[in-house]
């Protein structure tokens, strides 16, 4: 028991690692502030494409969505960060993470938004168009607000996934929370810094996970 506490919940080591972990946490927050809006924006584009009148565009979005939902995000990230330089395209870890997350998150958010848009009845479109609203105005003011509300639990739960996923940025040496914690671990030969990082993730995400369960159970009936 003592050795367990020493290895996993070592307060001295946590205190030493704290400044490093804190700066890592800040980078994680920064990263989330970049990739979540990016993903949501891309998802809207994808959803709009997937309900398009033009068959070619519909198929293209379908292929995009299926492809990027299939590729594990870590694979995508490594290909972009380590593979593209062979084609003469070099970028910072941050940039690589943003691109990978845009491709990955937009396809997941896109599927969610599409389901939401499809859940809004044809009558809503007709009523709005009959008052003279354009397609875009109808989409923006009448359909999307209802669509996002209908799929709110899915949007929130996918956002939790995106936040968790930012931890893979550590693999391309982006100095976010997990990277900082793992650095502290490798210096101290002690697992406590990563446990501390886990605690930070839990503090932020546990309430959201609870909320998602609530939302899902409420809408389920």
């Amino acid at each position: 028991m003592e050795i367990f506490l020493f290895q996993f919940l070592n307060l001295d080591i946590m205190r030493q690692a704290w400044p490093l972990i804190l700066s890592g946490a800040q980078m994680t927050v920064l990263l989330c502030l970049a990739v979540i809006p990016l993903g949501l924006f891309g998802g809207l584009l994808v959803a709009t494409g997937s309900i398009s009148q033009w068959r070619a565009l519909r198929w293209a979005t379908k292929a995009y969505v299926d492809f990027f939902r299939a590729v594990p995000p870590l694979v995508l990230l490594i290909v972009i960060y380590s593979g593209l330089p062979f084609a003469g395209i070099r970028m910072s870890p941050f940039m690589a993470v943003c691109i990978a997350f845009f491709l990955n998150a937009s396809s997941f958010y896109g599927e969610i938004f599409r389901a939401g848009v499809e859940s809004v009845g044809r009558g809503q479109w007709e009523a709005a168009r009959s008052t003279g609203l354009t397609w875009l105005q109808t989409y923006r003011f009448v359909v999307l607000p209802q669509a996002s509300r209908n799929v709110l639990p899915d949007l929130v739960s996918n956002t939790v996934e995106v936040i968790k996923l930012t931890s893979i940025a550590s693999v391309v040496s982006f100095t976010e929370l997990l990277y900082a914690a793992d650095m502290a671990r490798s210096v101290t030969y002690n697992t406590s810094p990563i446990v501390l990082a886990a605690v930070l993730y839990l503090i932020v995400l546990w309430p959201v996970v609870r909320l998602v369960s609530r939302l899902e159970h409420r809408l389920g009936h």
């Binding site: 009558g123 007709e126 009523a127 168009r129 009959s130 008052t131 003279g132």
Partner: peptide, 8 residues
């Protein structure tokens, strides 16, 4: 269309 009211 705004000149043509419709009730569903």
């Amino acid at each position: 269309r705004r000149r043509i009211g419709m009730v569903f």
